[in-house]
Design a protein around this nucleic acid. Structure first.
Lengths: 198, 198
DNA sequence: ACAACACTGTTATCTAATCAACACTTTCGT
DNA sequence: ACGAAAGTGTTGATTAGATAACAGTGTTGT
């Protein structure tokens, strides 16, 4: 990481785009991040290797950005600003998180697992934002300050995200739907102090 | 054209590629070059407008490069180095030229026609090269110096190219195949002083 | 065990791409 | 017919990307 970059320069946008595309296309061929080198990424992106390090710490930082964007896109498309805090939407949201984690989990070899906690943070943040937006739109049963809302979103996001991570890592003997159902019940209960979900 | 560019710099290659791709994709939508502006090309290519002029005189220069590359590709793929100077390959070559000219002709509005002669030169040069390579490989019936070979290729290339241009511009009352047949006969006759085509 | 090899991160130097601004020309609506 | 809008082609100053070279860290094989 020599020089951080001006986010608005068209060259910067294009370079990041090229690196992301190259990474994704390699991921589709290889299936595991472990077997992909920075050299390969930059070669395919027609970008100099040094330029890579001007944008990303390493390939895992690139992965994080990609996952964050992908996750953001999933949440945005399925839970657009029009959807509100309801039992049904919450259920769908939980399932979406489970699905997403299950999907990319198989790209990681055991050797990569050490990095996993790092980008999980990014996903949790995205999830928290969605929940916070929902909380803001809903008429709360009790008046709460901004801090309470944010804390609620934080806790609930982890209540969904944590189980999803563990489930995706585990043997998945309990089915996704059963897990999601459990989580949903607890989340709704957890929300009861500030809002009644119907 | 402010600064000519270093042909080997990866940035240069990529920029040219991006401009070409943008141009082609616009051409597929619009069908006429006349309705495409330099601005649009650069926007779609995510390249600055000033950068365009560092590479090309105007959009017609870009068109010329594109046509040259495309034509080169057609000739290379259909008449690889393995093919030799024979009646059948000559026939195919002539048809390929006719087809190529017919194809892109409809991209041009009357207003663009003034530029046509300009890039026809580029195509003729490509054609001449193919012919020259063939002449070099074939055992000539009479010993000829290098200059004679080049002149022969030059004349023959025009003998093919000129009729193809006129035919593609005209009403095409005579079919492509009939025209090609006439041209073939004359070309073979024209080659007879240096080589007998079977 | 060690040598050959491939990959990683980092640096200084150089160059291509961006930007904003300029004076035109062309096109278009009313 | 005329003013607005959009496109052209050019310039100088600024910034991101390319390059080559570096030391260091695994892999690989023999």
């Amino acid at each position: 990481m020599a020089t951080p970059a001006n986010e608005n320069d068209p060259r910067v946008k294009r370079t990041r785009q090229l690196l992301l595309q190259a990474f994704i296309s390699l991921l589709e061929e290889r299936h595991t991040i472990h077997s992909i080198s920075v050299q390969e990424i930059t070669e395919r992106a027609t970008v100099n290797r040094a330029t890579f390090y001007a944008h990303f710490e390493d390939k895992y930082a690139l992965l994080e950005v990609w996952m964050r964007e992908k996750f953001h896109h999933v949440l945005e498309s399925q839970f657009s600003t029009t959807s509100t805090l309801q039992r049904s939407t919450l259920h769908l949201l939980i399932l979406a998180v489970f699905d997403f984690l299950a999907l990319w989990q198989y790209h990681l070899k055991p050797a990569d697992r050490q990095f996993v906690p790092f980008f999980e943070v990014a996903l949790q943040q995205e999830l928290q934002e969605v929940l916070l937006n929902w909380l803001k739109q809903v008429p709360l049963s009790v008046p709460v300050c901004q801090e309470t809302g944010e804390t609620t979103a934080l806790v609930i996001s982890w209540a969904i995200f944590g189980p999803a991570v563990q489930w995706s890592r585990g043997d998945q003997t309990i089915t996704k739907d059963v897990m999601a159902h459990h989580v949903l019940a607890i989340v709704i209960a957890g929300l009861s102090p500030v809002v009644t979900v119907t």
